[in-house]
Computed example of a mutant assay.
Amino acid sequence: MNNTFLNDVDKGLSNTPKYLLSKYFYDKIGDALFVDIMNMPEYYLTRAEFDIFKNQTQNLIETLKLRKDTFFELIELGAGDGTKTKQLLKALDTANYNFNYVPIDISQNALDQLKSSINSELPNINTTPKQGDYFNVLSSLKQSNHPKVILFLGSNIGNLNDILAQDFLTKLADSLQANDKLCIGLDLIKSEKIVLPAYNDSQGITRRFNLNLLERINKEFDANFDIDTFKHQPEYTEDEGIARSYLVSTKSQTVTIKALNKSFHFMEGERIHTETSRKYNDAILNGFLKKTSLKVIDKLMDSNQYFADYILNKDE
């Protein structure tokens, strides 16, 4: 039994308002559903960043100041299926760069699939997967003195609230050496008509992705969530620049989680907050970086200017 997950469920559902952490979306079913989400027409984020990694690969390599005669570690936080990163890996492999790729993800299933696909498609690349969440792996970065490039793509940092995001960037900076680089992918603030459908697609895949979290709690902790009595509800306004997702109880009900020997009451219309996705601009990012030793040295954007990969340098 995953006691950390169980304790987080207890903490979240005991809170007012209720919440569940988005990192627990990713079991085997959740991984597959998220791949489907990335391929749906409304979900522009993956296509936009893929555009950057495919069409500006050489710019990326030059901006990261990678050298063929210097071994480095390419560390990816929240690697997922590695679709975008493989564009960079192919270019580095073709040009005979000397590096080790370290994908880090909370999902062991995702890491197993990624390592298998890289071994098949890019057999020359040395891949060392690590399972864990972002905060837990920061201390391990200090254990190596090799130059490092950190990839934090997909606007994953947007899943953290502003305080946690700033704290994460501060801790990440403290874990790096001078002149290490960070490539951070950020979804830019846009109109509601572009952003909201990405979290509320016409095929209902995002709905199933969110509801699968309740299914996972049912399976792993012997709970009795009635999935048909919860609805997926995303919200976003351009003025705030933050997309949020909720699961809303459609009736008054009580849910029991046997692994906790505990029940939780839901009023009709009561919401469980499942995900936050902040959108960014230069001012927001630079505000987060003020108290860190990280400085923006370049910014690569997709052809629609929906998304940006910012390149940051760790100062002396």
Rank of each mutant, 00 (worst) to 15 (best):
M1V: 09
L6D: 00
V9S: 05
D10V: 01
K11W: 10
N15E: 12
N15S: 15
T16D: 13
L21Y: 08
S22F: 01
F25D: 02
K28A: 13
I29H: 01
D36P: 07
I37Y: 01
I37Q: 02
M38Y: 03
E42F: 08
R47W: 04
D51A: 01
I52Y: 09
Q58S: 14
T63S: 14
L64E: 03
K65S: 12
R67Q: 13
K68D: 06
K68V: 08
T70M: 13
F72V: 05
F72C: 04
F72Y: 07
E73P: 02
L77E: 03
A79G: 05
G80S: 01
L88D: 06
F99R: 01
N100E: 15
D105Q: 00
D105C: 05
Q108F: 00
D112Y: 12
S117C: 09
I118Q: 00
N119Y: 06
N124K: 05
N126S: 15
T127K: 00
T128R: 12
L138E: 05
S139H: 11
S140K: 11
S140G: 08
P147R: 12
P147C: 10
V149C: 10
V149M: 07
V149R: 03
F152R: 06
F152I: 03
L153M: 14
L153A: 09
G154D: 02
D162R: 13
L164A: 15
A165R: 13
A165P: 10
D167H: 08
F168D: 08
T170Q: 14
K171F: 05
L172I: 12
S175Q: 12
S175R: 13
L176Y: 00
L176N: 04
N179K: 15
N179I: 10
N179E: 15
K181I: 12
L186Y: 11
K190Q: 14
K193H: 14
K193A: 14
I194C: 06
I194H: 12
L196P: 01
P197S: 06
A198R: 08
Q203W: 03
G204R: 07
R208N: 08
L211P: 00
N212M: 06
R216F: 01
D222L: 11
A223G: 06
N224S: 09
F225T: 01
D228N: 14
D228A: 15
K231E: 15
Q233L: 15
D239Q: 14
E240A: 13
I242Q: 11
V248E: 14
K251D: 04
K262T: 01
F264G: 07
M267L: 15
I272Q: 03
T274V: 03
E275D: 02
E275W: 04
T276S: 14
Y280C: 04
L289M: 08
S303L: 11
N304P: 00
Y310T: 08
I311N: 04
K314C: 03
